[in-house]
Nucleic acid binder design. Structure first.
Lengths: 170, 170
DNA sequence: ACCTTAAGTTCTATTTTAGAACTGTCAATA
DNA sequence: TATTGACAGTTCTAAAATAGAACTTAAGGT
């Protein structure tokens, strides 16, 4: 499968993965949320090759996640800052960080702590239902085909059929 | 940077990216949450090459995200199912899907809708603070170094210093 | 003149991925 | 009995992506 094909898939996960679904893009976004904005700063803090950094920044700008803002003339220099579309990736970044905090820490504990300026406490992010406010789990959610769906997949139908005869996952 | 180095970084995002930070792992996980469990079903529904699928499944099992469960003897066959560690990735998957629903849909609308069995309504996932319950945004969060942190980076210090003299992001 | 900062671009070598074919086991079918 | 099909991989070569280092361009400072 080509990257371009991913963008066209009738699946919001696949389309998002087409934008941020590689290790460097996610790490670049981490730096953006930590207020890194300039080419050499990204390069120094990530250890990414300059070639790939230029490529990924271009891609994130093309998708409207970052925007180039001039910060000096002659020679013209730009900073890469998050657009609103980019800022909206915060839940993605935070849920990834939280999973790492839960399942990948070593004996020394968490590398970073997060304080909510609203309540002045250290917090964890919790994903809740927009309608009833209860925390979400995979088992409490039922998936329906939406208006942008493609015809249903025979593979999924077959697997679902089998699923009725065997134990539940988990 | 090598993949192995990512696992060792004192950063929960980097460590998580070492596990799920490539396009195929995320797509495989999508299928897992849609109840796909078997090798050929993954292969048929994703179009991934068999070589890479075998490699990624092995990796996800090694990290404890999936578990191999025998479903028949002679020839011995296994299903790949999510462990609790894997089920805990649900907020990651859902936040990615929600960003795609918000920013990457075409004119036809969302490919999938999600119903909460708890309240029987179609919902969006919302990320809130575990302490005060308010929705989270990047600007309302302050980051502190935790016990597992490394010495602070000169790059971040420099960028932060510069940040005080220029406009805020966004 | 020479060094530094900054943001890239270019180059070759290595690694990863795509795509297709092949292997091994067993069950069901002709 | 021979053949076909399901299933879960492995093996192969060619193409693509990445690593790592050097180079370029344009200015400012000493």
């Amino acid at each position: 499968m080509k990257w371009d094909a991913l963008e066209e898939e009738p699946c919001s996960l696949a389309r998002t993965v087409a934008v941020i679904g590689d290790r460097w893009s996610l790490l670049i976004l981490r730096e953006c949320f930590l207020r890194i904005r300039r080419f050499d700063d990204f390069q120094a803090s990530l250890g990414i090759t300059r070639h790939l950094l230029a490529d990924r920044l271009k891609k994130l700008v093309r998708f409207g996640v970052l925007r180039k803002i001039p910060y000096q003339e002659s020679p013209k220099r730009y900073e890469y800052i998050l657009t609103q579309k980019g800022l909206d990736l915060y839940p993605v970044i935070m849920s990834i960080v939280h999973w790492g905090d839960t399942h990948m820490v070593d004996a020394r504990g968490r590398p970073m702590l997060h304080e909510h300026k609203n309540c002045h406490k250290m917090f964890d992010p919790v994903m809740v239902c927009s309608e009833c406010g209860e925390p979400l789990s995979a088992k409490a959610v039922h998936v329906h085909r939406g208006p942008g769906a493609r015809q249903s997949s025979p593979v999924h139908a077959k697997a679902q059929e089998r699923g009725k005869r065997v134990a539940e996952p988990g």
